[in-house]
Design a protein around this nucleic acid. Structure first.
Lengths: 216, 216
DNA sequence: CGCGACCTTGAGATGGCTCAATACCAGTGG
DNA sequence: CCACTGGTATTGAGCCATCTCAAGGTCGCG
């Protein structure tokens, strides 16, 4: 609670070092860099959506939560991902760093109004991911959820058969709609079956085919 | 299986009666009308996304499914909703009628390329709904899921305290990530608590406030 | 060395699932 | 008018995957 408040206030003190745009798939952004430590918030639900952001290093997650503290992580945004795009004037989810992270922020209209198609693609792709994730959370077992998660991460982050996960077990649990204990057990079980090798946050996929098959 | 094949072939025999566009919030569409009976498919995952659709009456749902038949309904599209918009060339979900339904279909480029902003808004709004739904499926209990569902439906369909649900219990279950039995039990329990009155598909919200509070 | 953050493991509790029976209702045919 | 049928919904009883609670392990850091 206190930590959150602090983070919100902190948001106003933006590191004034200007930074150029990057040249990768995602929309370009020119703005100010800001570094965050683990769990620090970029914004909360309800904050006005004047800015859009891009991850430079580390990662950020979008979180929806219920009054009693149950959390659902909607998506992870890793290096070069753009986040914080909204239809309305306010953010609907909180965004917080999953590890030490650097982002750049830009005032709303400076991004991609000159390439509206890019924004549309961005939104539709995010929609795709959300829909796929809905199937996972709604209909897959714990083991299956963890398996798809590992495959996704490996695809996105690594040389396809090895990843270093940037997020904690708790974050994985909140993303997959499970508890931290169930995630842990699923990981050990996947390892016991010889499908992966886990060393804390280092994951090696020993049998990507079998892993994929697990997810149908 | 056979029914599905039939539905797919059927798709080519489009009722040739031309139909004008509608004048409501959603993007306009001019195309051919087609009527569907319950469970009939408009398209399957993998079909080429040459057309976009709009619901005239009845309703349609988007379905993702696993190889073993587990189904997750991603969204319901009711009167005047547009569906079938894709980034890529192919549909990623199946679309099927939840009851007797009439839709109109239009070739891809004829919709809203002249109002790209409309399409973006449409996508972002769908994304919002999907994200909210993810929280529901990932973190709420069965009763809570059914409660939010009823509230949503009432908001969308009725004079806010009474609805006639257009979809079956099975569809509700597949939407909420539950079984049909659990949905049924949750409904009876909500009724036992005096929050709603259920008469098959007719639902009256007796205490919308308490119902809302249940969802935090 | 000791502390705190994070993760794993175990044992028991439980919400939701499975399987099975019954109820309900519309349509159909005798 | 009733019996039969098929689709849909409700209810019950037992089971199991996941959660909860609790203990212990690991690792980095002061």
């Amino acid at each position: 609670m206190l930590a959150e408040r602090f983070a919100i206030d902190e948001r106003r003190t933006i590191d004034p070092e200007p930074m150029g745009a990057c040249r990768d798939g995602q929309p370009n952004l020119i703005g100010f860099a800001r570094s965050l430590s683990r769990d620090q918030q970029v914004f909360t639900a309800g904050d006005s959506a004047d800015f859009r952001y891009k991850v430079i290093s580390g990662g950020v997650c979008a979180v929806h939560s219920l009054a009693d503290g149950r959390r659902q992580i909607i998506e992870f945004n890793l290096s070069s991902d753009v986040f914080g795009v909204e239809v309305d004037a306010a953010h609907r989810a909180a965004a917080e760093a999953i590890c030490d992270t650097v982002i750049i922020s830009a005032r709303r209209p400076s991004l991609a109004e000159h390439q509206p198609d890019g924004l549309l693609r961005h939104a539709l792709r995010e929609l795709q991911r959300c829909q796929d994730h809905l199937l996972t959370v709604g209909r897959r077992t714990a083991i299956e959820r963890v398996a798809v998660f590992l495959i996704d991460q490996a695809e996105q982050l690594g040389p396809h058969d090895a990843v270093t996960l940037p997020m904690s077990r708790q974050d994985i649990a909140d993303y997959l709609g499970l508890t931290i204990e169930t995630v842990s057990r699923a990981l050990t079980q996947l390892q016991a079956r010889g499908l992966v090798r886990i060393d804390s946050r280092q994951v090696r996929l020993l049998s990507p085919a079998a892993l994929t098959q697990l997810c149908e």
